[in-house]
Amino acid sequence: MDFLDLIDALQSLADGVLFGATYALLGIGFTLIFGVMHKINLSFAAASIGAAYASLLILAGVKAPPALVFLAAAGCGGVIGGLVYLIGFRFIPLANPLATLMSTVGLLLLIDEIIVHTTAGVPLNYPALFSDVIIRAGPFNLRGDLMFVFLLGCLCMVLLLMLLYRTRLGLATRAMSQQPVAAELCGISNTKVNILTFVTTGIVGGIAGAMIGAAIGMLSPLLSLPLTVKGLIVTVIGGLGSIPGAIIAGLLVGGLENLFQYWRGVSERDLYIMLLLFVFLVFRPGGLFAPATARD
């Protein structure tokens, strides 16, 4: 491998890590819901893309500047998150492990169908911010839109971690994921915490959806299934229920994905990511940060 080749490889790695912030946010969404309810919400990535679509709709309606698209996506994501909880979890028997899995698969398909029907399946352009800015660092170019997506992702993560670790609301959520019965008997309503978790992850998902739209410049209903798979891979590699794990795994998967694409082309890219998942499942099934299991 000659020098220029190495530079290009590093460039793709860096771009991938920046884009990986979106995977990290998706992974956080999956992992938070799993941490609180011990359920997988398979509709999460689709809902995130749905929120990004909804934000386009709002923007077209009120003629707001494109910078507000992220705010709109966050709001729509929160609303959709709450709806997903109401439809897919609130009245579904939680004791049956397959019930919510099926209901969330149903929601995934439903959201996809709604998108396809309202847009006739045609991809829509999504406003990118700072796409004309390119920062040169030695032989490398850092794309402004990717940098923006990355920084926004980091900001979300910091705010989320502060919420979870520094406020009583966050501590109540973590208390519930550790000891649901004791939390209920400390006056914490499990139902309210569940709703709040879904709304919060929905907001995070909406921002992630908008970031994905902004980074690739468009939205398509074809995004939701691959993103669901990526989100789940990130969650498993990071360790189910671990937020730091999801962040690191998200950046890792983003970086490696781009690197594999550079080396082997886009058609083989996901093959290697699946292989990475396989390696983790075999050698480190708990993920990077297996969360401490509470003893009873």
């Binding site: 009583r168 501590l171 109540a172 973590r174 208390a175 550790q178 000891q179 004791a182 939390a183 400390c186 914490i188 401490a292 509470a294 003893r295």
Partner: peptide, 12 residues
């Protein structure tokens, strides 16, 4: 709540 501190257990 094992992963919370003593103080946080009461605060929650």
């Amino acid at each position: 709540f094992g992963q919370l501190t003593v103080w946080q257990n009461l605060w929650v």
